[in-house]
Design a binder for these strands. Structure first.
Lengths: 340, 340
DNA sequence: ACGCATAATTTAAACGTTTAAGTAGGCTTG
DNA sequence: CAAGCCTACTTAAACGTTTAAATTATGCGT
C-alpha cells in the first residue's frame, strides 16, 4: 500500500504539493498537477482515511444505534433506514457505524464512549421520546446529532420526523369517506410521544367530523400483537350501537392483531371491520386481506437526517433544522367494502 | 478532550510510561502505575482510537455490506444479524461499518475502496454464491474476511453457514411423519448455491423414504411472492393422484404465496395443504394459520463469523475455519392436520 | 565500595496526512 | 533597475499514539 511519500517521490515533488493537488488547495501549476495525478494513478494510491482523520480530528463516521426488537416482532424500517443513511453518507465520504444499545449499559454510556474515543463525528438518534436522556446528554456536551423523532418542545435541536398526526388524520378521513362512523384506535401508552402525536390525529379527525368518541374506543397498550388481539375482541363484544366498524392501529403489528381477532370472530376484514395499520411493512401487501397502512418516507428521513448531520459536523447550521415529512396512505383491501 | 501528553504531564512521567500502563506492556513500578491511573481518571482520558489506528495501521472496523431488498420483500434476518455482529465485535473493541452495495457500482469496487482507504480490517460477506467475485477478489488480495455462506468447493476460505440440506430434510421428514406422500418444493434457480443445498435436502429425504418425485413438484423460480402463488395454483390444478398435499418453500415469502393460493382456492392450509417456510421471519407466527418454518441460528452465525474474523485480523488461524450450523424447525398450524 | 544485572523510565522516531510559514524565482511597476 | 509581489513550490511541525533503543535508577553479591 503506497503512501503520499511514495507519490511525492515518484512525481519529484514534496508531499505538501501532492496534498495540495489531492485537495484542490494551494496553488499548483498545471504541469506538476498532471505529474502528481499520473503518479497517483500509477501507484494506485489512496489516501489513508485514518491518517486524515488524525490530522483533522475527525473520523468521518456517523454513529447509529437502535433498540433491538423482541424476537417475535419486526422492525419494518431498519433496513431501508440504514441503507438510505449509508448512501447519503457515502456521497459526502462519510460512513455509518452501527452499534448495539445493549440493555445492561446505561443508555448514555455507549454514546459517551463513542464520542470520547473519537469513533464518530455525530449521531443519528432513532426512537426519541420526551425527556430523552440521550438528547439531553448530547445537547449538554454539544456533540452533533440529528434525531429521527421529536422530544421536549423547549429543547432546541435538529430533527426529522414523520407527521403521525397528519397520517392518522388521513387514515380516519379515509374511513369516514367510506361511511364509517364508529372508529376505534389501538394506541400506545401515554409515555410514547410518537403515540401521542398519532392519537391526536385520530382525535382531531373525529372532532372535525363532529363524531363523538366513545371512551371504550381508545385503548392504550404496549406495541404488542396479543394485546391488540384481545382488545379487538372486547370491541367486537360491545353492543351493536357501540361496536366499532373500523380500527386504526398505531402499528402494523397491532393492526394484524386486530385483523386476526376479527377473522377468528367470523368477520370479514374490510366489509365487516375495516383495519388500518401504520408503517406499511413489506409483508402488509401479502396479508389476507392486504392491509391498508401508512407508509413512512423512510428513505427521505434517512437521507435528510444524514445531510443535516454532516452540515452540523462541518460547523454549518442546517436550515431548516426541523423537518416534518408526510406519510402516505396505501389503500388495500382491509378497508374495502366490497366482498372480493 | 485530553491526550496522552496531558496524562503524562499530570502524572509526572513520559508518554511512553502512560502507554505502557494503559496497554499492560513494558515494566512499570506499582507506584507509577497508580499515579498514571489516577491521572487518567482525573482527566477522564480516553485514548484516541484514530491515533491508535494510525500507529497500528488498523481501523478496528469490520465491514458489512448487504444486498438491499426490493421494497415489497422483507429481510427477515438483517436486524438480528447486524446486532449479533456488533455485539460480538464490541467485546473485542471492534465495530461494524455498514455500507450499501449500490447497484451501479461494480460489486467488487466498493470492497476495494474500503480496503485501500484503510476503512476496515476485514469483512463479513453475506449472500455468497458460486464463483462469487467478492470472495475471489478478497482471496486474491489476501484480505481478511469470513463469509456467511459457502462458495466453490475448491476455494479454501473461512465461512459460517446454515445447513440448508439438513433443514429441508427435517422439514420433509416432519411432513412424512404426518402422512404426506406427495410433497412439492418451491425452489430457487440453479444459479443459487444456497437454493441448491436446500433442494438437495428435499430430494434426499424423499429418496430415503422411497418416494418418487414427480417432476412437476419441483419448480425453480426467483424468490418472489407472485411466482410462488401462481406455481401453487398450477399444483392445485393437477389431477388428484398427482396433486401435492404439502409444499416446502425455500423462503417464508414463497411459503406465504403458497398459503394464499391455497386459501384463495378454498382450501384450508394445514389440513388440506401443508406449507413449510424457511427463515422463520418474525411475522410467521401471526399469519393465518401460523406458518411452520425453519429458524436459522442467526445470532450464532453473526457471533461466530465475527469471532473468526477477529482471529484472522490478528494473524491467527481460526479453527475450525468452516462452521455449519443446524436450523431448527418451528412447527405451527400450517402443518397441523386438525381443523382448528 | 564496586561492578553488574536487572528494573524502571525516557527519548525519539514512526505511523500518513495537512497546513502554516518560509523561500526561491520571475514579473510588474515606478 | 531596485523594490515589491505574485506564483509555485518546499520545509517542518503537528495530529495522538506505540515502541525500539537508549538511559538512568535500584538492588545484589562479593
Amino acid at each position: 500500500m503506497s503512501t503520499i511519500k511514495d507519490v511525492a517521490r515518484r512525481a519529484g515533488v514534496s508531499t505538501a504539493t501532492v496534498s495540495y493537488v489531492l485537495n484542490n488547495t494551494g496553488t499548483v501549476s498545471e504541469a506538476t498537477r498532471q505529474r502528481v495525478l499520473q503518479a497517483v494513478k500509477e501507484l494506485g494510491y489512496r489516501p489513508s482515511v485514518i491518517a486524515r482523520g488524525l490530522q483533522a480530528r475527525k473520523s468521518r463516521m456517523i454513529g447509529y444505534s437502535w433498540r433491538p426488537m423482541p424476537p417475535d416482532q419486526f422492525n419494518p424500517i431498519l433496513e431501508k433506514f440504514i441503507h438510505s443513511m449509508a448512501e447519503a453518507a457515502e456521497r459526502h465520504d462519510y460512513h455509518v457505524l452501527t452499534f448495539p444499545s445493549s440493555i445492561p449499559y446505561d443508555e448514555v454510556t455507549i454514546y459517551q464512549d463513542m464520542i470520547e474515543s473519537g469513533r464518530v463525528d455525530g449521531f443519528i438518534l432513532p426512537h426519541t421520546n420526551l425527556n430523552d436522556r440521550r438528547i439531553r446528554y448530547l445537547l449538554d456536551v454539544g456533540f452533533p446529532f440529528v434525531a429521527f423523532g421529536r422530544s421536549n418542545p423547549d429543547w432546541d435541536f435538529p430533527w426529522v420526523d414523520v407527521d403521525g398526526t397528519g397520517g392518522m388524520r388521513q387514515a380516519v378521513t379515509h374511513l369516514l369517506e367510506l361511511g364509517h362512523r364508529r372508529i376505534a384506535c389501538l394506541a400506545w401508552p401515554e409515555t410514547s410521544l410518537t403515540g401521542q402525536y398519532r392519537l391526536e390525529g385520530y382525535q382531531a379527525a373525529m372532532v372535525e367530523a363532529n363524531l363523538p368518541i366513545d371512551p371504550a374506543w381508545v385503548v392504550r397498550t404496549e406495541n404488542d400483537y396479543y394485546h391488540a388481539y384481545q382488545i379487538t375482541q372486547t370491541w367486537l363484544a360491545l353492543p351493536p350501537d357501540r361496536r366499532p366498524t373500523a380500527v386504526v392501529a398505531l402499528s402494523d403489528l397491532m393492526a394484524i392483531g386486530a385483523m386476526n381477532a376479527a377473522a377468528d370472530a367470523g368477520l370479514k376484514v374490510g366489509p365487516d371491520l375495516a383495519v388500518v395499520g401504520f408503517d406499511d411493512a413489506p409483508i402488509t401487501g401479502y396479508l389476507r386481506p392486504p392491509l391498508t397502512s401508512l407508509r413512512q418516507p423512510i428513505a427521505e428521513v434517512g437521507e435528510r437526517a444524514v445531510t443535516m448531520l454532516i452540515e452540523l459536523v462541518r460547523g454549518e447550521t442546517p436550515s431548516p433544522a426541523q423537518v416534518l415529512l408526510k406519510p402516505r396512505l396505501i389503500v388495500r383491501d382491509s378497508t374495502r367494502l366490497s366482498k372480493t
